[in-house]
């Protein structure tokens, strides 16, 4: 029984901080949600809707974090780097939006979209 409690406890600790590595499937549907989010972000930046854009960017930041963890456990270094890069771009977009620099936010959003594509060339099934 103690062993069980220990396992439960460690699991709960882990879930409190981040996603359990390797147990989450980064599959097509997951990616589709991210893509839709990216489109929403692009539109919100264009419309200068600060809160909506921040929301989108934050969500993407978190998603890329998950993706990064996923690939760390798969041992795919290039994918890890792309995920990191994407996350960083999502962070900087939030900065630009918050300071009302929509032009730079817009361009950064394009850079983010390109990073998506770069990773897809290797990791998307049947492009």
């Amino acid at each position: 029984m103690n062993k069980l409690k220990l396992i439960v406890y460690s699991l709960l600790v882990m879930t409190a901080t981040s996603v359990i590595a390797g147990e989450i499937s980064i599959d097509e549907d997951y990616m589709q949600v991210m893509e839709d989010r990216q489109k929403s972000l692009s539109s919100n930046i264009s419309l200068k809707k600060v809160n909506a854009a921040l929301n989108d960017a934050k969500s993407l930041e978190e998603s890329f974090n998950d993706v990064e963890t996923f690939y760390v456990h798969k041992g795919k270094e290039d994918a890890v780097n792309w995920s990191k890069e994407s996350r960083e771009l999502a962070v900087s977009i939030q900065k630009y939006v918050a300071s009302n620099d929509f032009d730079t936010a817009s361009q950064t959003s394009v850079a983010l979209a390109k990073t998506c594509k770069t990773c897809h060339r290797s990791y998307k099934k049947d492009t």
């Binding site: 069980l4 396992i7 699991l11 879930t15 996603v19 359990i20 147990e23 989450i24």
Partner: peptide, 10 residues
């Protein structure tokens, strides 16, 4: 989902 997994495993 992660919590669900945790419960399952536990």
């Amino acid at each position: 989902k992660a919590v669900y997994v945790a419960v399952l495993l536990s």
